[in-house]
Design a protein around this nucleic acid. Structure first.
Lengths: 201, 201, 201, 201
DNA sequence: TATGAATGAGATTTCATTCAT
DNA sequence: CATGAATGAAATCTCATTCAT
């Protein structure tokens, strides 16, 4: 009796198993067999649903990026005010969201980051995301400072966010999200304070 | 045409070839055969000189860390003044040194970073280096601000440096060292400006 | 054309192919590729079913020892009398059983014998078997002679059996089982005749 | 300053090192590098003096066989009487000679034994030796018993000697030469006692 | 004479993928 | 829909041998 509607369930299971496997042993050792075992299914099924390992990895990265976008968007949707500080603050909060910061997601993220340098498909996903973050930051900073300065502010804050995450993924204890948020917000405050007096210009 | 005393030469060649290979195709695809071909030698010799692929990778990471330390140390040795700003500025300059930032080194660095999450030996090297950077920054900031604030400043600047590097490694055009230095120095200035009035205490 | 439930079949095939390969070219040249070819399968499957070459060799030795034990046990089960001579005679017969003495088994046996000197796992199997043979012989001799003499008789007969086998494995024509049995039984008769007059003591 | 007359010294060193290596790790793991290290020379020199590894192994086996022959011959040269018992006794003594029975020689012997099954050159050496032992035993037994019986006695005693040695090589404690000699002599006595009354016939 | 450098063949093992059931 | 069987390519490592010095 073939079960119907299994596809979305299986896909989700396998994507989740992929993150777990990467968190556990790293991307290099995350074989389809291990991933399949984590999902409680056979290895062959991965090719069935994703066309192959690469398809599964791509789907997993896509999932992570989607989760991140959604975490940011959710926070921006409920803002009580429309100020740049509020928007950028929401971006920071979204990036250090609980679900992003927890073990599996963080390590998978970094693994893909490194891997994307030589895999065009992953690199494309990566770039789309990067650009969106940068564009959003730029747009908000642009509201209170000159273009050139806004660009630098966006670059700086993006680097700060990624750097905090990177270092968090590497420390054995994991990222201290509270501390990271504090540092990012402090940096944001500094960036904004330099220009609060001179609107757009 | 074998000669004697080839060992140091071969080791250097192979380490260099490893960086080139990783830059070219990524850590996952950097097979011993490819590395050996880059060095113009046979694959077997890697086991001969490094005991195996892992030994070569470890030696390569060690080399990169050494190069970085040396780039920083060289700049600090020739400082004309002893101020925290001068020292930390030298650390920033060293981290965005030409040899560090060029393609091979940067990509190899990031590859090892991701890999070190699951390889104890690499992780150890990583940690030693991280701690030294943090300790140095902390010590210098401590000279002009209270301990808690110095710690946060060190964490923030370390994250900023790593973040700039990370993003630089990912962009196809490579890291814009000039821009990175500018952003890092600007951040440093902000960190220091907040405390210039209140010495140590 | 894969079917389910192949595991026991493949394991048996591969163990058999191992003996054939060792018989053909010796243990040193019995590569997994050659063994796999004898079994008509691919080399990779050996790791799949036995975890690696060592696992296969161990399983093969185990099989040979089991076969030997069973050959002896089968003969002892159908003895019409319970005398020491009958039991020990059955042990001799079992050791020179058709299936033991045929080319593949005999050469494989000797190959493992030599190899077991430096492979703990094989050595363990070897010892268990040796001890059982010695204990059985000792027990039967003990019924008709003093302990010290029984021990020597057991040692002597065990050596005789092994020696006949060893020389049989080395002669190009293979072991002459008939002749070997005759010599062993003659030796047994001599050992027993010396003590028929003095029961147990 | 090239040393002259090194050849016999080096050859002896290397043959000895080969036995030591085989005793230590077994024939399969006795690489030229390990053998060379035992001899305190470089690996390349083995090809120089023996034409290759096989040549060294052959020379080593030859040495062992020569040592054995000489041990037997030495004992037969000093016999006070010319009886079959004396001659065969000397053969037994020679076979359990101190130098033969000690670790390296015994294990090397067994290793070659197994190996000789598939190496024609070793097999030839093996056969020559076997036949000489058998012929000697046969000739002596023939002096006191009919031909058919003498052949069986020779076969039996040869098997006993080899069996004792084989089992001795396998026990972790090594061969108990004293016990082996006793058992062999006892067997010899039995063989002779059956026929002392009926000369040649 | 002897060494250390270097090679290339070969062996084992891993792994993604395919396929019949 | 799902599995377990099986393959074949690729990767690492070992090792005997050759060679220039």
């Amino acid at each position: 009796m073939p079960k119907i509607g299994m596809e979305p369930i299986r896909r989700q299971q396998l994507i989740h198993a992929t993150m777990t496997a990467i968190d556990e042993v790293g991307l290099a050792e995350a074989t389809v067999l291990r991933i399949a075992r984590h999902a409680g299914v056979s290895a062959g099924i991965i090719s069935h649903y994703f066309g192959g390992k690469d398809g599964l990895l791509e789907a997993t990265m896509r999932q992570i990026l989607t989760d991140l976008s959604e975490a940011v968007a959710a926070r921006r949707r409920v803002l009580s005010e429309d100020s740049p500080r509020a928007h950028i603050g929401a971006i920071i909060e979204g990036n250090f969201d609980r679900t992003q910061v927890t073990g599996p997601a963080a390590k998978t993220w970094l693994a893909f980051w490194a891997s994307s340098m030589h895999k065009p498909m992953l690199q494309r996903l990566q770039n789309v995301n990067d650009r969106r973050l940068y564009a959003n930051l730029c747009y908000q900073f642009r509201r209170v400072m000159p273009r050139a300065q806004a660009r630098n502010a966006a670059r700086g804050l993006a680097a700060m966010i990624d750097g905090l995450w990177l270092r968090g993924a590497l420390t054995p204890e994991g990222l201290d999200a509270e501390q990271a948020r504090t540092l990012a917000h402090a940096y944001l405050d500094q960036l904004l304070s330099q220009t609060s007096a001179q609107p757009t210009a």
